[in-house]
Simulated assay, not measured.
Amino acid sequence: MERTLVELLRSNAEHAREFGSRFDAVQDSQRPDVVTVCCSDSRVLADSLWGNDEPGRIFTCCNVGNRVVQRTDAGEAVSGDVLYPLEHTGTGAAVVVGHTGCGAVTAAYDDLTEGVSEPAGIEHCLGLLEPRLEAGVESLPPDLPRAEAVNRLVEYNVDRQVEFLLESDDVPGHVDVVGVVYDFQDVYSARRGELHVVNVGGVTDVGALRDEHPEIDSRIDRLWEY
C-alpha cells in the first residue's frame, strides 16, 4: 500500500502542476452542467469517460450499482448526492451511467435467482437494487447465459434509476434525465469505452430515440427492448 500511495501522490503532483490555474473560476462556487451517477467499479473512469478535464463542469457521484435511491426515515428518496447539484447549483441534467459486467447487478441477479450471503453493508446496497430488478429477472428470456442476462439487467437497472428520478417530486421538472451504458466488454460494439444511450427522459424505444435525436443516432442502442 505504501508503494501504491507514493505512486498516486507522484501522479497527483503532475496533476497539480497541470491543473493549478484551471481552478481560478471555480474556487469559491460551482455550477456544473450535469450530475452523473456512475458505478464505483474501478474500470469505470467516471470523469475520463467523458473526456472531462475541466473542474466545475461535471458533478460526479459514484456508488455500487449507480443507484439514485437512498432510504430515509420517511421512506425512499433521491440520494442527496444526486439531488444536491440539482437543488443548489442550477444543474440542468442528470445522467445515470451503467456499465457492462456490473458486479452489483451480477450480485443482485445471483441473489434473486440462487440466494447469496454478503456482509451487511453490501446487503444494504443489494437491498436497494433488487426490488427494482426483480421484475426484470422474471422477464428475461429462458436459458439466457448469465453474462448476457446481467448485461440486459444493467440496462433494466439504468431504466429503473432514470424512472425514479423522473417520478420524484424533488427533481425539478426542467431537468433532463438520461440513461447510458459504458461498454468495455465488446457487448455493444468493438469500441471499448464507448457510451451507449439507452434511455432519454423515460423513452427507451431505439427507433423513436434515433428519430428524435438524429445528432446522436449512432450512439443510441439497446440490448433489450422488453
Rank of each mutant, 00 (worst) to 15 (best):
L126H: 08
G136F: 11
T106Y: 09
C125H: 07
L140A: 02
A108L: 02
V137S: 01
A93C: 12
G127R: 07
G136R: 05
L128W: 02
Y109R: 06
P119Y: 11
P141I: 02
H124A: 13
V116R: 15
H124Y: 12
C125E: 15
D110P: 00
S139T: 11
E114S: 12
R132A: 13
G101D: 05
A108N: 05
P142A: 13
S139A: 15
T91V: 08
L126E: 05
A104I: 09
P141G: 11
G90T: 02
V95N: 04
C125M: 13
G136S: 05
G90P: 03
E138I: 06
A120G: 03
T91M: 05
A104G: 14
A104Q: 09
C102Y: 08
V96Q: 09
A135H: 11
T89L: 13
P141K: 03
A107K: 09
T91N: 03
C125Q: 14
V105D: 04
H124G: 02
G121K: 01
E114R: 14
L126M: 06
L128I: 00
A107F: 05
H124K: 01
T100K: 03
T100M: 08
A94Q: 08
E134K: 09
P141F: 06
L112Q: 10
A107D: 14
L140H: 01
L112C: 06
G92E: 14
D110A: 02
G121L: 10
D111T: 03
A108T: 06
P119T: 00
A120R: 09
L126A: 04
A93E: 15
L140R: 05
G92D: 05
E130M: 09
E118W: 11
G98R: 07
D111V: 00
G136C: 09
E138K: 14
D111F: 02
H124P: 01
I122N: 06
R132S: 13
P131A: 04
L126R: 07
G127D: 12
A104V: 10
L129K: 04
T106R: 13
L126P: 04
D111C: 00
T91Y: 03
A94W: 10
V116T: 15
T113D: 01
Y109M: 06
S117W: 14
V137I: 01
C125D: 15
D111W: 08
V97R: 04
L140S: 02
G101H: 09
E123Q: 08
L140D: 00
V116H: 15
L112I: 07
A120D: 11
L140Q: 07
G90F: 01
G98A: 12
V96T: 03
A107M: 10
T89K: 02
S117L: 12
L129A: 08
H124I: 03
Y109T: 07
L129S: 04
D110Q: 14
A107P: 10
V116P: 11
A93T: 13
A94G: 04
S117Y: 14
A135N: 12
V137K: 09
G103Q: 14
H124W: 02
V96H: 02
L129I: 12
A108W: 10
G136K: 08
E134H: 11
